[in-house]
């Protein structure tokens, strides 16, 4: 039987793009904000775009904070995308008054060296201890700095500033780039995630 994936719905801007891409790779995926359905699913995808603070606000307004934290630490496959990665951390420079989910220790900071912000476009993703580089599509102005450096799964470099673009812990994977908009590289990435469930 096909495994069930919950795509957490709190009104994220990229929700439907993520949904379409996962459908395209053959996933059995449901858009939902129902706590019990999310809990019963075999895997979770947590999308997000926009400001750290407004994403956290929508999560809280939809009463999804505790279930997201639960699923992120449940050991079930979990994929965070873009701001869905950022809010797993404690706090964001963008909205210091709005705490994140705090699944991981660390902050979300703005690019400091870059002449042009946001970082928009296709950039190299270098998975630690693995080659070759592959290009994925990014759209963001902020990135995570995990306190525990062992969480860093992949890095990228924008305008001379190296940053963490993926974290991994057990079955949790969270990425700054948009696999749903990264062409074949992105579809392969999502298909791999689905196959491993």
């Amino acid at each position: 039987m096909k495994k069930n994936i919950s795509l957490i719905d709190f009104g994220a801007g990229n929700l439907h793009s993520v949904h379409k891409a996962l459908k395209f790779v053959g996933a059995n995926i449901e858009i939902t904000n129902d706590e019990s359905r999310i809990e019963k699913s075999d895997a979770v995808i947590f999308p997000g775009v926009g400001a750290f603070g407004s994403v956290m606000q929508s999560i809280r307004e939809n009463n999804l904070e505790s279930i997201i934290k639960k699923m992120a630490t449940s050991g079930k496959p979990f994929l965070g995308i873009c701001v869905g990665m950022q809010v797993l951390f404690e706090s964001g420079e963008e909205n210091p008054d709005m705490p994140g989910l705090g699944v991981f220790k660390g902050n979300v900071v703005k690019f400091k060296k870059a002449k042009k912000i946001p970082h928009i476009g296709w950039n190299d993703v270098g998975v630690i201890h693995e080659s070759p580089l592959q290009k994925f599509y990014f759209v963001h102005s902020y990135y995570v700095i995990p306190e525990d450096k062992n969480l860093i799964y992949a890095k990228s470099n924008y305008d001379g500033e190296e940053f963490c673009c993926a974290v991994k812990k057990d079955n949790l994977l969270a990425v700054q780039f948009h696999p749903e908009k990264s062409g074949d590289a992105g579809l392969n990435f999502l298909s791999d995630f689905v196959k491993k469930i």
Binding site: S17, A21, F24, Y137, E180, K181, S182, G183
Partner: peptide, 8 residues
């Protein structure tokens, strides 16, 4: 387009 093409 969004259902069939996965680039921005």
């Amino acid at each position: 387009v969004a259902s069939e093409v996965f680039i921005p």
